[in-house]
Design a protein around this nucleic acid. Sequence first.
DNA 1: CCAGAATCAGCAGCCAGCCAGACACAGTGC
DNA 2: GCACTGTGTCTGGCTGGCTGCTGATTCTGG
Lengths: 238, 238
Amino acid sequence: MRGFSRTGGPSTPAPVGLAAAANGASTLLDVMRGLSGCVLETVERGKTIFFPGDPAERVYLLRRGAVRLSRVYESGEEITVALLRENSLFGVLSLLTGQRSDRFYHAVAFTRVELVAAPAASVRRAIEQDSAVGLLLLQGLSSRILQTETMIETLTHRDMSSRLVSFLLVLCRDFGVPGSEGITIDLRLSHQAIAEAIGSTRVTITRLLGDLRQAGLVQIDRKKITVFDPVALAKRFS
Amino acid sequence: MRGFSRTGGPSTPAPVGLAAAANGASTLLDVMRGLSGCVLETVERGKTIFFPGDPAERVYLLRRGAVRLSRVYESGEEITVALLRENSLFGVLSLLTGQRSDRFYHAVAFTRVELVAAPAASVRRAIEQDSAVGLLLLQGLSSRILQTETMIETLTHRDMSSRLVSFLLVLCRDFGVPGSEGITIDLRLSHQAIAEAIGSTRVTITRLLGDLRQAGLVQIDRKKITVFDPVALAKRFS
DNA sequence: CCAGAATCAGCAGCCAGCCAGACACAGTGC
DNA sequence: GCACTGTGTCTGGCTGGCTGCTGATTCTGG
């Protein structure tokens, strides 16, 4: 259970009456698409959306697919800071101040991705003109904060087994597709990718996933993980 | 260095021209104080601001002091999800949907705290009436996201020593007061509290802090930690 | 203001979990 | 076919969690 059912609620921001009334744009997507200078982009799996050091001048809305935000160290090590799901806002740093600032994360398309990018200035202008836009963006960011905080919960688990389980539950929440056998995580995850996200190593993930599979809790088919019963899996916390 | 100097930048949202022009309210604090139904509260160290399960109907701005957001488990274990510094927005969950929702974190005053609380409905109304309010809130939330993501970086460090160092640097950023000898973290931190924040145990923190002290990197006086030289400390990453 | 209670800090020894490094093999795409 | 990425497994070694105890500090209620 822990953090699974409860945080599952407010994930996809529902249309708000206010916004719809204002100008017919009832979702973030509608709003973003209406902005001047907005661009619809498709990025192939593995391609970079922005590099650390790039100027932060656009705000992105992830329309389809998953994006990985990561931090790269001199050592070559790479840490995943967030795995963004559909409907997530990112690159909001550019809204922060009027001054120019730079990205410090690396944003990579984790799957084939469709996104809407709009200049920060356009977004600011849209907010001025229609306050409903501000509210929608706020809701988008709030939901990002909730996701991130769930991830912090995951990462403070002491033993790797609990961390992995907790992470799988987060993935179910964000990328889960219900099927006949359980919930399938709609991402092609390598053990290495999981390790980078929860601060472990490839070998450990291999071992722990093997344990979970042998316990009959999950199934793995061509890098796609199916969780048979999230509640049963949650009981696996140390 | 890692995440220290870079994220230090956009911490306190600077007044934005737009907002000032709109109605003279140039900071979040001004905005919040002007809201109908807003309440100024003082909460003593250790007292609860809201419990998990409480209805989420107000948005808070932390005016002075520090607030700890945590998750409590049946086992009695408690995990710190965020240590909020002055000027942080929290309780934004209530903005998310029109429907009623409940808190799932425990918010406790970590120090003596002054805060402004406003009903979510008032906040929504204020955004409608003055779009500058929306922008200020957005900036507040963006800065929260940056903080939270730095914390994720901290937590994905594998060895406890790096995690502790990284956490101390985060604390310097958020609660540091420069002094003649270095930066003093203006919080009374027990080893237990640190352990709960970085997913370790009291004993380990005791040992590692002892090491840092012996290495001449930090000083601890009645639960207040002074970091002599953040840059030197940052070199301590494994 | 004081005494008892509670929390906090420090130390040591034991042991499991996990990392490092290495290697073989399977799958996949060019 | 070949290169590359991903998976599975083993051995050794060390970090860090767990337990138990003691003395110091801080809090609390009279």
